[in-house]
C-alpha cells in the first residue's frame, strides 16, 4: 500500500517536471506569467479604487479586504498550478477522448489526470497571492510568530485542497453533462470575489453558502480573523485543513461515480 502511494507520487512529480521543462521551451512563457500577474492586479484594482474614493467602512480598511482576498487567490492559484489536469479535464481529456488512454495505464487515475497538464504561468497567481497576503499582514502589524505562520500555512494548504476539490467536482459532473458546465465558474474565479464584501455586511446567503457548501471563507476569512484578532474563536482558524480535506474527499466521490458511469466518447 505504502509503495503504491510512493509510486503514484513519483509518477505525478515526473509529469509535473516534464510539463515544466516543456513549458520553458516556449520563449513567451514569461509573457503569460506577466499576463496572469496583470489579471490579478486588475482583479483587485476596483476594491482599491473604491476605498480610495469613499474611505473605510467602520473598522474595514482595504488592507483587511486585501488579506482575505489574497488568501483565497493564493489558494486558487496553487490549486490551479498543481491540479491543472482536473481544471482542463472536461474539455481537453473527456471531450477529446484522451481519457480512454489513461484508463489503460496501470496507475492511479486521479494522479494521472492531475498531472496531465501544468502551466508555469499559473504559478504567477499563487505567487502574487502569497506576496499580497504577506504584505497585507505586515501592514496590519501582525508579527511573524510560529502561530501566525502556522495558521496561514494551514490555510493555504486547506485552500489548495478546496479549490482542487472544485476542479475534481467539475470533472466528475462532466461525465454526465459537458455543455452546461460554465456555472462552475461561481465556485472558481467568481467565488473569491465574495471576499470583497466586508464580512459584517455580507448577506447571510453568501456567507453560509461559502462557509458550509464550499468552504471558501473557512480558508480565507477565518484564518485571517484569528491571526489579526478580529474576535473569531481561535479554533475556527484551524478548520481550513480539515474542511479542505472533507471537500476534496466528497468531490472525489462524485468523480469516482462519474468514472463508473463513463462509457467512452468519440467515434
Amino acid at each position: 500500500m505504502k509503495s503504491a502511494v510512493w509510486r503514484d507520487a513519483r509518477v505525478y512529480l515526473k509529469y509535473i517536471r516534464m510539463h515544466f521543462l516543456s513549458g520553458l521551451e516556449y520563449k513567451g512563457w514569461w509573457m503569460m506569467a506577466l499576463q496572469v500577474l496583470l489579471v490579478c492586479v486588475a482583479d483587485f484594482l476596483p476594491s482599491f479604487l473604491i476605498f480610495a474614493r469613499m474611505g473605510d467602512i467602520g473598522a474595514w480598511t482595504w488592507e483587511r479586504i486585501l488579506l482575505i482576498y489574497a488568501l483565497a487567490v493564493a489558494s486558487f492559484g496553487l490549486a490551479e498550478s498543481f491540479c491543472r489536469g482536473f481544471d482542463y479535464f472536461p474539455w481537453h481529456m473527456l471531450r477529446s477522448g484522451n481519457f480512454d488512454r489513461l484508463l489503460l495505464r496501470p496507475r492511479s487515475l486521479a494522479v494521472q489526470v492531475a498531472g496531465s497538464f501544468f502551466h508555469i504561468h499559473r504559478l504567477a497567481r499563487a505567487a502574487i497571492g502569497i506576496f499580497a497576503a504577506v504584505w497585507a499582514l505586515s501592514r496590519l502589524g501582525v508579527p511573524a510568530t510560529a502561530f501566525s505562520v502556522g495558521v496561514i500555512g494551514l490555510a493555504l494548504l486547506g485552500g489548495t485542497l478546496v479549490y482542487s476539490g472544485v476542479f475534481v467536482l467539475c470533472s466528475g459532473i462532466a461525465f454526465f453533462t459537458i455543455k452546461a458546465l460554465d456555472w462552475i465558474y461561481i465556485l472558481t474565479n467568481a467565488s473569491y470575489q465574495v471576499t470583497r464584501i466586508p464580512i459584517d455586511y455580507m448577506p447571510g446567503l453568501f456567507r453560509r453558502a461559502f462557509t458550509f457548501l464550499m468552504p471558501m471563507l473557512v480558508i480565507s476569512y477565518y484564518p485571517a480573523a484569528v491571526v489579526c484578532g478580529w474576535g473569531e474563536p481561535v479554533a475556527a482558524g484551524f478548520l481550513a485543513l480539515p474542511a479542505g480535506a472533507a471537500f476534496l474527499g466528497l468531490s472525489l466521490l462524485v468523480w469516482k461515480l462519474g468514472v463508473r458511469h463513463y462509457q467512452s466518447t468519440g467515434s
Binding site: I50, G55, D56, I57, I197, P198, Y201, F206
Partner: peptide
C-alpha cells in the same frame, strides 16, 4: 452588494 455597502456605510 459591494457598492451598496460602500454607499450606505463608507466614511466618505
Amino acid at each position: 452588494t459591494v457598492y451598496t455597502v460602500f454607499y450606505r456605510y463608507a466614511a466618505h
